[in-house]
């Protein structure tokens, strides 16, 4: 399945092009199961690139969050293309960014890596605690094989993959300039079981669940920072004029913060799950984002990040949109 040879060859070729600024991929991290993003500028660095079940980062966020520093007088900005390695979910982020004109299709070279699921580090660390030596991993028939210091260990996918991967319906990049290896079969189908479970709870239960979760939020803004769809120059969550959300870290402001972000992602969130992954206090953010995703699918029959020609959900309407709750 994963062809590292091909990956590195393609990376080398791409970076050697005159019109490519750099290639963003993954390389091994500094310890344990960690993987880091890598900004490759020289063809020689290709050897560092990897693709394994440990590559959880959604690199699409670097396309839009790159800081546009003021251009010194007499110089021209570097507008060359950026090459990007994407898994299925990541490619949807790129498509949605293009739909929203955050980037132009011709400014990015999408290198598709069909993916059989990446791990949830919390689950992995529970299974294999205290591993500091560098670990490699690969897929085998949908399961994950870890190359630990003591030898190879194969773990069934249900035990170690991120929840989002177990219900993933788009493991293959939906848009790519080059697909590095053959597509994987879609193993997941999302029934939103966890969302439905929450929906049927009574008001008090829901209230206390979310109040409990959001009260632990430390307002580190990691979720907003890592999200590929959060790239406004002056984010509404930061704004002082008008001051929508106060900077105080308390139940009501935290609630407003997360509700605002979730609402702003309505029809835009492509379920990459990065927000939940990076949250230092393990708030189940996907439980909220996926609820809106489910409603978008069921009520409006719309999924973001699939079609380059689609219109954003809340910037369009149908004359027959439902209105059963309107008096």
């Amino acid at each position: 399945m994963v062809d590292l040879e091909k990956l590195r060859t393609v990376a080398k070729e791409t970076v050697s092009r005159d019109d490519v600024k750099y290639l963003i991929g993954w390389r091994q991290g500094t310890y344990g199961f960690r993987v880091s993003p890598h900004f490759m500028k020289e063809p020689e660095e290709a050897e560092k690139l990897i693709f394994s079940p440990l590559c959880s980062n959604n690199l699409a966020t670097y396309l839009t969050s790159v800081e546009k520093l003021p251009v010194p007088r007499g110089e021209e900005p570097d507008t060359r293309k950026v090459a990007l390695m994407v898994k299925g979910c990541d490619s949807r982020a790129v498509v949605q960014q293009i739909v929203e004109q955050g980037i132009k299709r011709e400014d990015v070279i999408i290198i598709g890596c069909p993916c059989d699921g990446i791990v949830d580090l919390n689950k992995v660390k529970e299974k294999f605690p205290n591993v500091l030596e560098l670990v490699q991993a690969r897929w085998n028939n949908g399961n994950v094989v870890f190359q630990l210091p003591e030898g190879e260990k194969e773990v069934p996918r249900e035990e170690v993959l991120a929840d989002k991967c177990l219900t993933c319906r788009y493991p293959n990049p939906v848009e790519a300039d080059v697909m590095l290896w053959e597509e994987v079969k879609t193993r997941g189908s999302d029934e939103y079981a966890d969302i439905k479970e929450m929906e049927v709870k009574d008001v008090q239960e829901k209230k206390s669940y979310w109040q409990d979760k959001f009260s632990t939020c430390i307002r580190c803004y990691s979720c907003r920072n890592v999200c590929p769809m959060c790239y406004c120059e002056d984010c509404i969550l930061d704004r002082l004029n008008p001051n929508w959300i106060f900077r105080s870290v308390n139940a009501t402001e935290n609630m407003a913060f997360h509700l605002t972000r979730a609402f702003h992602l309505a029809g835009r969130c492509i379920e990459c799950g990065e927000c939940e992954r990076v949250c230092p206090v393990d708030i189940p953010l996907m439980k909220l984002n996926r609820k809106l995703y489910k409603e978008t699918r069921e009520i409006f029959d719309y999924e973001p990040g699939l079609d380059l020609e689609s219109k954003p959900l809340l910037a369009s309407y149908r004359p027959d949109d439902q209105e059963d709750f309107i008096l």
């Binding site: 929906e199 409603e295 910037a315």
Partner: peptide, 26 residues
């Protein structure tokens, strides 16, 4: 028409996080 879509989504979200539907009317 835009308001209708936006508030459909808002209403789903509010109810989901425990805001009583009796508090929001459109």
């Amino acid at each position: 028409f835009y308001a209708r879509r936006r508030f459909t989504m808002l209403r789903e979200m509010l109810e989901y996080v425990g805001v009583e539907p009796e508090r929001f009317h459109m």
